[in-house]
């Protein structure tokens, strides 16, 4: 590996993916047919708009067909200081996509000397999904959510995607993965358009709790092993992951509430 040098007409500029392409290093899953039951899948993730930003969360289960393959997988990642990405779908390509996405954003910022806009980041993710389309049609689909704090507009923003790279900005909440139908029902009923961060954290735990109740591929809270969803708050001060101990307290409160309602 020597210092990469390019002539002006083939210079990739601030594009890390373009750099990988020019050096023939792009990851590719094209041309392989995979049995969906044999590979690891991540499931339910949600993002909720709050008054001062967004809350993102995801359950911890990964499945291969009907088997649970991992109990503590993480599906919510910081994209940079003020945005996050949550993934559902084929775990291998999804994790690689997140890694490349994080690198792409940071690479752009270092080369250009200033960060990409939030729209620019969402657009980058769209393009990565679009180039993954052949793999998606072979059974390696990835469907992420992107959310962040827009420093220009001073508010949180949410984006849903599909496997073709389609990008859909949502107002109150965004969901993805096998349990997303059930999670979004809870979110739809409870979201009043003016949630505080505190309320949104509780709501995200509740939405994942009910999704896990209905969908076998979504993992519920597991107090025996101390496994709770990954919950992250993104606002003007950045991306902060909520501690497990706090999630345990909040989960217990939810269980007490549900139990109380039934007695």
């Amino acid at each position: 590996m020597t210092l990469p040098r390019f002539s002006p007409d083939s210079d990739p500029g601030p594009d890390f993916l373009g750099l990988l392409q020019r050096l023939d290093r792009s990851p590719s899953w094209n041309g392989v047919q995979v049995d969906a039951n044999q590979i690891t899948h991540g499931t339910t993730v949600v993002a909720i708009q709050t008054l001062d930003g967004v809350v993102m969360s995801g359950d911890r289960r990964a499945t291969s067909g009907h088997l649970i393959s991992h109990r503590t997988i993480e599906k919510v990642f910081p994209a940079d200081q003020h945005s996050g990405v949550a993934i559902a779908g084929a775990a291998g390509p999804a994790m690689e996509m997140v890694r490349l996405f994080q690198l792409q954003i940071e690479h752009y910022e270092k080369v250009e000397g200033r960060p990409l806009s939030l729209d620019g980041k969402a657009n980058q993710l769209s393009q990565m999904l679009r180039s993954n389309l052949p793999a998606a049609l072979q059974g390696l689909g990835v469907v992420p959510i992107f959310a962040g704090f827009d420093e220009k507009l001073q508010k949180g923003r949410l984006f849903e995607f599909d496997i073709t790279g389609g990008r859909y900005e949502e107002k109150d909440f965004a969901t993805s993965g096998s349990g997303s139908l059930h999670a979004s029902t809870v979110l739809k009923l409870r979201h009043n358009g003016k949630l505080s961060t505190d309320e949104a954290i509780d709501l995200s735990i509740e939405a994942l709790f009910h999704a896990a109740d209905e969908d076998s591929a979504t993992g519920g809270p597991d107090p025996i092993r101390g496994i709770y969803p990954v919950v992250a708050v993104i606002n003007s001060s950045g991306f902060t992951r909520i501690e497990d101990s706090e999630l345990a307290t909040r989960t217990n409160r939810l269980v007490e509430k549900v139990t109380g309602e039934r007695s």
Binding site: M1, P4, L19, L23, R25, R99, L100, L103, H107, V111
Partner: peptide, 9 residues
């Protein structure tokens, strides 16, 4: 930057 990011990747 390119070289470092590539190596880290």
């Amino acid at each position: 930057v390119r070289h470092a990011d590539l190596k880290g990747y």
